[in-house]
């Protein structure tokens, strides 16, 4: 059985905490961080990284181009 696993990398200083990625994430992976970046924004992060399937919906809706997405097919 093959399982798709993903991960996102957020450019924390570019993130403005608009939370559109959080809304777009179908696997409830992303959340806004309680801490803030240098400009005071609650940046997004993978709260439940195990959930991420690398669908790239978050990066598609991100207005600030601050999300990179990785995906790996893991064969068990």
């Amino acid at each position: 059985m093959a399982k798709v696993s993903g991960a996102v990398v957020v450019d924390i200083e570019k993130c403005k905490g608009c939370s559109l990625c959080v809304e777009a994430c179908p696997t409830l992976t992303l959340m806004l961080n309680r801490s803030v970046n240098n400009r005071g924004y609650h940046f997004c992060y993978m709260q439940i990284p195990e959930n991420c399937n690398g669908c790239a919906n978050c990066s598609a809706v991100c207005p600030d181009s601050c999300i990179s997405v990785y995906r790996l097919r893991i064969v068990h």
Binding site: S5, G6, A7, V9, G54, A56, S59, A60, I67, S68, V69, Y70, R71, L72
Partner: peptide, 9 residues
């Protein structure tokens, strides 16, 4: 997972 060969976007 975060390796160049796995980059999707």
């Amino acid at each position: 997972i975060i390796a160049p060969e796995n980059l999707v976007y």
